Simulated assay, not measured.
Amino acid sequence: MSLNKSALKSAPDMVYDLQWEDGLLVGLLGVSGLIGTVGNAAVILAFCLYRKVRTSANAFILNTSVFDLLTSAVVIPLIISSLMSGLPNCGGACCAFLGFQNLFSLLQSMLSCVLIAFNRYVHVVLSVDTYKRLFGPVKAVLWVVGAWVSGILIMFPAMSGIYGSLGWDAYVQICQLSSDDPASPLFFTNVVLSLYWVVVLAISAFYIRIYLHVRKGAMAVGQHLGHSPQQVSLQAVKRTKHMFYIFFTFLILTCPHAIINYVDFYATLLPEAVFFTIGAIYYLNTAVNPIIYTWTLKEFRQGFKSMVRCRRQILPNPPAGQPAVTRPARVRNVQFRLTVSNRVAQAGPSFALSEVNT
C-alpha cells in the first residue's frame, strides 16, 4: 500500500469542520456505546452471578465482553468527543493508551472467536478425553491469558515505536495509530489486517470440519449403521451452530472495515459518508454481541431474566408439556419419587466443578 506523503505532512495543519457525515457517525456511535455498555455489563454480571452461566466455553465469551465493555463505555465516548472537537481529547500518553485499547479490543475479539471455534471443534470432532484435557476450568482461564499475552506481543511493535506508533490519527479524528508516523498504516495493514484474514480462514476451516463431521454422522444414522464415532449429541451441534452465528455476525460487521482500510486507508477514494458509516458499523459489533448471546444461548437468556427478577439463582425450566408452578402445593404425608425424567441436568459445568462444558 503506497503512502500519500503530502497528505502526511499536511495532516497536523488540517482545519477540522464538523460535517453531516460526522453527525451520522456520532449518532451511530452513541447508540452502539449505550447498548454495548448495558449489554456487555449484563453479560459479565450474569457470568459472575450464576453458576450455570459460568462454564469453560463461556469464559471466551466473557473475554470478548470485557473488552467490548471497555470499548463501549470508554473508547466510544472519547471518540465522539474527538469527532465533535476535531482534536485529541487528552494528552499524548492518554491518546496512545486509547489507541492501544482500540486495537487490542479488536485483537481480543478475533482471538476469542478462534478459541470458541477451536473449542467447538475439539468437543464435536475429537474425543471427550481430549476435550477435558484441553478445556477444563483452569485451562480455559489459561487460554484467555494466552490470548492477552498474544495480543500484547502483536501490539508490541507499535507500542515501542519500532513499526508504527500509537497516537492521534488526524485523518479519521480518533486515537488509534499516529498519522505522523509513516509506518503506522503499514503496521495496520501488514500486521493487524493480515492477522484478521488468517483468523477468518482458521475459523472457517474449523467450522467446515465440524460440518463435515456432523454430516458424516447423520449419513451413518440415516443408513441404519447404528452408533458410530461420527455421531454427536444434538445439544452439542445446536450450541456449535449458535457459536457460528456469533462468528458470522463478527465477520459481517468487521469485514467491510478491514477491506476499506486495505484499499483506502486515508479515506481519499470513497465519500466520507461511506467511510464513516462503515466505521460505525465496525463499532456496532460491541453492541450486537450481547443481543446474540441472549438470542442464541439459553443460559445467558435465563441469567438475564433472573437478574431482571432479582433472583440469586437460575431456576430450571419446567419439563416440556407441563405448566410452570408458581407456588409449591402443600401436601402432607405424601412422598414423591424422583424419576430419571425429573432430574434436569445443567447445560454445562461451572468453574466450581471438575467436569467440562458440553
Rank of each mutant, 00 (worst) to 15 (best):
L195Q: 04
Y121V: 03
E21Y: 08
N63D: 11
R239H: 09
I154K: 00
P318V: 14
S85N: 10
N4W: 11
V53E: 02
F156N: 09
Y282L: 07
F100L: 06
A202T: 11
G27Y: 12
I116S: 00
Y283W: 10
A46G: 07
V53S: 01
P349L: 15
F351G: 01
K52L: 04
F67D: 00
L115F: 09
G279H: 08
R311K: 15
Q313A: 13
G164M: 02
V192G: 00
T268D: 13
I246Q: 03
I116W: 03
A140S: 14
I35V: 11
A202F: 12
S6W: 15
F276R: 03
G99K: 00
I208P: 05
S150I: 06
Y131F: 15
C255N: 11
S72A: 08
G348T: 03
A183R: 07
W295Q: 12
G23H: 15
P182H: 09
L107T: 00
F118T: 06
N4F: 10
V331A: 10
Q230I: 06
M155T: 02
A117H: 01
A273S: 11
G39V: 06
L18P: 01
P316T: 07
R327E: 14
L69T: 00
Q313K: 14
C175V: 06
C113P: 01
D181H: 06
N63S: 09
M219Y: 15
L111R: 00
L201E: 10
L107V: 01
Y131Q: 08
L34T: 07
P323I: 10
T37H: 02
T339H: 12
C255H: 12
L98P: 00
G33T: 03
R133H: 11
F187L: 02
S354E: 15
R332A: 09
T37S: 05
V340N: 14
V172P: 00
L315C: 11
P12L: 10
T64H: 08
A320N: 09
